[in-house]
Design a binder for these strands. Structure first.
Lengths: 238, 238
DNA sequence: CCCGATGTGTGATTGGCATCACGAACAGCC
DNA sequence: GGCTGTTCGTGATGCCAATCACACATCGGG
């Protein structure tokens, strides 16, 4: 099955390639079957807003393919990105469960696919499958911890370089036995990175130059190589 | 019944004066009775740490009298206060439910009383009273929204004066028909206010001077009078 | 292939706030 | 009442990051 944007549509949760790891994915067979019935799937182009901060919640989106950024903005247009979501993540859960407005905006960063589950159907489903409701509570609590992580970063980390180092570390695979530097694909613009650490595009640009000069990282095209993790950790706990 | 620190001990939830408004307070009679059995109450002096960030959760505290501040700190000693809790508030709920370390430190700001409910007893209680479990889920989601409010303040509000104005407004009763300026008792030190808005003691001092000069507020002893709410709102949405 | 849109590098300038450094006011306590 | 410790007001100083400005690279579509 072939979709626009060169994506393969995944229209059956039972054979979804990301099934194992995530909430709503790794469930008893009967639950997944039920889920498969009540969801509707769609393919979205880049820059689609799945939902916007302040909207009444219509339901949740389960990201099947592509990345999405979650952000919140002030009235004057300043924006912070609070999370980059990937395949398997459930978006809009908290708002949908509590029936309050979405607290963030979810925007596709690249073409992708997502399943939509309407609020009513979800609540009905959760009533039917109590164990899944528990999983949802756990997920909500996980979200809460992530939010507190963000509060700590924003409130306790003063300098942009510290936050930048923190971000780089959060990207770097945390294997202890890392003999060789971590390679990873950099898909964000400087502007987006700036919105993640609460600074300006120019500062991010300068941070890259600076860190390159100090041999902390290296750039080959869009591949980012983290050369000196210990030094980054030192910057974070400075 | 008379306790140290000049407090009246409230040892029976059924006749608690704050019963009406809060989670765990406004419940069916049988549930409150059960709650009354599984809780233990204690009186704490000023500066008591009910629990500390990073500790394994032992259970929740229901504040009966006195105020407590919730805060999180960096390793270098910088601290932010995320909330001032008052009578009726439940502290440590998220950590206790999810069995992750307390994400904040809770410290009494004045002598007070709190009921403690151990984790096991609480979980058992929630299993028994499903409706209360639902209330808990709602509370968790409320906490999440509060956390996001904090993220917005920290991440999108740039200047200290803006954050200070925001704080003043959050203290001011939001009655629309306010013909006369709001009076309220100021119990926090400048240092604590600084920790709430992420700045220094000196800056808070200067902000008070500045706002006094601009006729936005007035101080009479420890009574704070907010003189020009519209102007404050203007500063916030600048 | 060209051309507009989007993203990136870097200099110059400036202002706001942290920091340091006092002394004054105030509170609690023997 | 006088002592000690906390809290508060305010000046002087310096620095770091926001802002403005502009040239260059890169990408994608017609």
């Amino acid at each position: 099955m072939r979709a626009p944007y060169g994506l393969n549509i995944i229209d059956n949760c039972l054979i979804c390639p990301v099934r194992e790891e995530h909430l709503f994915c790794n469930l008893p067979l009967s639950a997944v079957q039920k889920l498969n019935e009540i969801k509707s799937t769609a393919v979205y182009p880049k820059s689609t807003m799945l939902f916007v901060e302040g909207q009444q919640p219509r339901g949740v989106f389960v990201l099947c393919a592509g990345k999405a950024k979650l952000s919140t903005s002030s009235s004057e247009g300043k924006t912070i990105i609070t999370k980059i979501s990937e395949a398997g993540d459930v978006l809009g859960l908290n708002a949908t469960i509590s029936n309050r407005p979405y607290e963030v905006t979810a925007e596709m960063m690249e073409p992708g696919q997502a399943n939509f589950i309407a609020r009513d159907a979800l609540l009905q489903f959760l009533r039917e499958y109590g164990e899944v409701a528990l999983r949802v509570a756990e997920q909500l609590s996980r979200n809460y911890y992530t939010a507190y992580e963000e509060i700590r970063t924003l409130g306790l980390t003063s300098s942009p370089s510290e936050k930048f180092a923190k971000l780089l570390l959060s990207w770097s695979p945390n294997a202890e036995n890392a003999t060789e530097p971590a390679h990873l694909r950099l898909t964000l613009t400087h502007e987006e990175i700036a919105e993640m650490i609460g600074t300006t595009r120019e500062t991010v640009s300068r941070l890259f130059s600076d860190f390159k000069e100090k041999q902390l990282l290296q750039l080959k095209g869009s591949t980012l190589i983290i050369r000196n993790k210990p030094a980054l950790e030192k910057i974070v706990n400075s």
